[in-house]
Design a protein around this nucleic acid. Structure first.
Length: 135
DNA sequence: CTTCTTACA
DNA sequence: TGTAAGTA
């Protein structure tokens, strides 16, 4: 992470990828989607602290279950600095619906687990009793 | 289809 | 870097 003339830090694509634990390809993917616009110096991309913040927003968005399109919209209003309230309300709604979704999945998984356990006991009992052997 | 990852040239 | 194939 090299400091720029202005005092702000700049990052290479590898710096950011390592920092956030993603690949350079993901960064290019987001760039193709117009969510990141790193400054170019020749071939190289140089990311500013602002880019880093945007990437964090993208990753946070992913974590709460936003689609790329939703994140794009979120970033748009973030950049425009308007609709901040609306923006946060939407994010909050997304968080709540995602929590509900994950809880439902957990319920479903727990039911599957219980069913598996039930069947496992039956089969284990058969094996132990020799009932499973066909003869 | 979406959202990347991996890999090759 | 473009592309293609694989993934979940």
């Amino acid at each position: 992470m090299a400091p720029s003339a202005g005092g702000g830090y700049v990052y290479t694509i590898g710096d950011l990828a390592d920092f956030f634990g993603i690949t350079h390809r993901a960064l290019r993917f987001y760039e193709d989607k117009g969510m990141l616009k790193p400054r170019r110096v020749g071939q190289k991309r140089l990311y500013s602290n602002k880019d880093r913040t945007k990437l964090r927003l993208i990753l946070n968005g992913k974590q709460i279950g936003m689609t790329i399109r939703e994140i794009q919209e979120f970033l748009e209003s973030y950049e425009l600095r308007d609709g901040n309230d609306v923006q946060m309300r939407k994010a909050l709604a997304k968080i709540r619906s995602q929590r509900l979704l994950l809880k439902q999945r957990r319920e479903s998984i727990e039911m599957s687990l219980q069913e598996l356990e039930r069947v496992e006991k039956i089969i284990a009992g058969m094996v132990e009793a020799g009932t499973a052997l066909d003869e």
